[in-house]
Design a protein around this nucleic acid. Structure first.
Lengths: 338, 338
DNA sequence: GTGAAAGCGCTAACAA
DNA sequence: TTGTTAGCGCTTTCAC
C-alpha cells in the first residue's frame, strides 16, 4: 500500500533473472511469455510477496481504474441502491468505486473536483453539484447525471413529474379526494421538485389547488414523523398526502396512527420509490416503483463506456436524456385494497 | 481525468516561464515562492485549466490519498451509517473513500486485494474477508477490522455478546418470559453470531434454553417479514423474539399484526442497532443502541493515523481490540411502556 | 527563491 | 519470446 519496503517490478526481474518487461507481461497476462518464464516469474512474485502498484500502472497507462459517484448523502435506501448498482458494474469491469457525500460538507466544489482527479469518470446525482461546476467537470471527463435533467449532459432519470401526476390523478379520479397536500420538497433536490410539479399539475388540470404548501422537512423517515406531528397539531388533515419519497411516507405511516389519525381511513398516503419497506408497512404503501439499482448500474455503464471511448480518441458520447420507465404500484395506503 | 490533452506541470512551467519545480511548489502551497512568481504561475494554471494529476502526485510521494472500506453489502441503514462515518473522516483528511461490497461477488479475494492496491489503508467489516487474507492484507498495509474481533489485528467493535445477554436478561427478569427464540443468525456475520451467543448465555445462566433454533433468513426487513410468516405458519409463537438487528425486528413488527399476532401482546420483539425506524415503529422498538457512524469514523481515523505513522517509518500500531460502549434502549416492543 | 535532474513503479514501443 | 529504454506527471534533493 504505502511505499515502504514494497518490492517492485525491478526486484522481481532481478530475482527471476528476467527483464522488467517480462515481469510486466506476466502481471498483465500478456500471452507472449513462455510458460517456463511465466512460472519462474510467478514464483519470484510469490516469494517476494510482490503486488503491482496501481499508481505506477495507472500513471503508465493514464487510467485510474476508478469510478466516482457523488451523492447528497450516504444515508437511506435510495442511495444505498444506487451505489449498489454502480458498484456491481464497476466491479465487473475491474474498477473500484469511490463515493462522496455532499451534504454535511462545506467545500463541495473542492471535494468533487478532487474526486474527479482520481477517477476515470463520474456519476453525479442531481442537485449535489451546481451547474457551472457540472459542465466544467463534464468537459474534463466522462460524466453522467442521475435523477435530474441537465441540458447538454448525459442524464439518466425517471419521469418523476409524469409519474407523480399519474399517482395524484389516481387519488383524484379513483378515490375522489379533493384536499391534497405534498410532503417533502427538498432544497436542491431536483427530483423531489419534479414530483411536486407533477403533483400540482394533476391538481391544476382539474381546476384544483393544493390545500397548503408542502410540508418541508427533509427526505427521511424521521422527517416524515415530524411532518405527521406538524400536520396533526395544525389541525388541518387533508384527505390525501403525496410524499416525495417512500421514506417520508413510512415515517408518516408509523406516526399518524399514534396521533389518532387512521391511514387510509382519515388520510390517504402515497410515496415514491417502492423501497423495501413499502410492501411491508401497514397499511402497505401505494407508490411509484423505480428501478434504482438498475439506474445506478446503467449510469456506471455509460460512464465506463465513455471512458473507454475516450481512450480511443473517438467522438464523445452525445448528450442524452434517458428516461427510465416507472410503474404505479397500487397498494393499501391510498384507500384501495383495504 | 483520462490522459487526453490535459496540461501538465511542464506546460505550466513553459507558459509561466518558470521551472516545473516552481510550479510544483505553487500547487503544493510551498511557502518558498515569491508572491510575484506565485501569481504568475497561478495565472498560467488558470489560463491552461491545469489540474495536477493525482496519479503523478501519488506516484511521486507514494500515497494514494484513498481509504478503502470493505462491506458485505451496500444495502441497509447499518452500512450506510458506517460509510458515512468513514467518509466524513476521510473527507476531512483530503482523502477519498473507495467502497466495495463482497456479497454478490464471486472473487472477493481478488476484489479486496485490488482495493488494497489502490488505497492507503483498509477498513474491513468482520465476516467479509477470510482470516488468512485478512492477516496478509494487514501485513501489507494499515487495516482495521470493524464489528469483529480478530487476534493480532486492530479491531473496533461493540460488545454484541454482552449487550444481547443484557437485553435478553431484561426479557427474562423484568418480563418473566420463558419461551424465547433468536431471529437472524447470518452466515459469516460474526457480530450476529456474537449476539446469538449472548442470547444463549442469558438463557443458559438461568437454566433455560431457546425453544427452537434461530429463524435464519438474512438480515434485512424482508427477511424479518419472511421470518414472521414462517413463525406463524409453524404455529409455535414464543413469548419473545430476539432479533439480530433492527431491520429484522422492523420486518417482524410490520408483518406479525397482519397475521393476527399482536406485538408485544402476543410476542415481544427486540432488536439491535437502534436505527432510525426503531423509535418510529409501532410499537417502538426496544433495542441496543450502537454508535455506528462513530465506529466508522473511528475506524477511518485509526487507519489514517497508521498510514501517516507508516510514512514516518516509526513503529506499527499495536494490535488492539477496542470495544465501544452500547446502551440498552427500553421502548414498547418488549412489553415495557406500552 | 529558483532551477536542473533524478526518480516514484509501471507499461509499451522498438530491438534483438 | 525477451530485453532495452523511454517516458506517464509529479515531487524533491541539491545546486546556484
Amino acid at each position: 500500500m504505502a511505499r515502504s519496503s514494497r518490492s517492485t517490478v525491478r526486484d522481481i526481474a532481478r530475482h527471476a533473472g528476467v527483464s522488467v518487461a517480462t515481469v510486466s507481461r506476466v502481471t498483465s497476462d500478456d500471452p507472449h511469455v513462455t510458460p517456463g518464464t511465466r512460472t519462474k516469474v510467478l514464483a519470484s512474485i510469490e516469494a517476494l510477496g510482490y503486488r503491482p502498484s496501481a499508481l505506477g500502472r495507472g500513471l503508465a497507462n493514464g487510467r485510474f481504474s476508478m469510478l466516482g459517484i457523488v451523492l447528497p448523502g450516504l444515508g437511506g435506501p435510495y442511495f444505498a441502491e444506487l451505489i449498489q448498482g454502480a458498484e456491481s458494474v464497476a466491479g465487473e469491469a475491474g474498477m473500484a468505486l469511490s463515493v462522496i457525500g455532499t451534504h454535511m460538507r462545506r467545500d463541495v466544489g473542492q471535494a468533487v473536483r478532487q474526486l474527479s482527479e482520481r477517477t476515470d469518470g463520474l456519476v453525479v446525482v442531481g442537485g449535489t453539484v451546481d451547474g457551472n461546476l457540472l459542465h466544467q467537470l463534464a468537459a474534463h471527463g466522462p460524466l453522467v447525471v442521475v435523477a435530474d435533467s441537465v441540458p447538454d449532459l448525459v442524464c439518466i432519470r425517471t419521469d418523476g413529474h409524469g409519474a407523480t401526476r399519474e399517482l395524484t390523478a389516481h387519488l383524484l379520479e379513483v378515490h375522489g379526494y379533493r384536499t391534497l397536500r405534498f410532503v417533502g420538497l427538498g432544497r436542491g433536490s431536483p427530483d423531489a421538485a419534479a414530483r411536486y410539479a407533477g403533483f400540482r399539475e394533476a391538481l391544476t388540470e382539474r381546476g384544483l389547488a393544493e390545500v397548503a404548501p408542502p410540508l418541508v422537512q427533509g427526505m427521511d423517515s424521521k422527517a416524515g414523523a415530524a411532518a405527521a406531528r406538524e400536520l396533526v397539531s395544525s389541525g388541518a388533515v387533508p384527505q390525501a398526502l403525496v410524499c416525495a419519497n417512500d421514506e417520508l411516507a413510512i415515517g408518516l405511516l408509523a406516526t399518524l396512527p399514534g396521533l389518532g389519525v387512521a391511514v387510509p381511513g382519515d388520510v390517504a398516503i402515497v410515496g415514491f420509490d417502492d423501497n423495501a419497506l413499502a410492501s411491508l408497512a401497514s397499511p402497505t404503501l401505494t407508490t411509484i416503483h423505480q428501478p434504482i439499482q438498475a439506474i445506478g448500474a446503467e449510469a456506471a455503464r455509460v460512464v465506463l463506456d465513455a471512458a473507454r471511448r475516450r481512450e480511443e480518441v473517438s467522438a464523445p458520447p452525445p448528450p442524452e436524456d434517458r428516461v427510465i420507465p416507472t410503474r404505479l404500484v397500487i397498494r393499501e395506503s391510498c384507500g384501495c385494497l383495504y
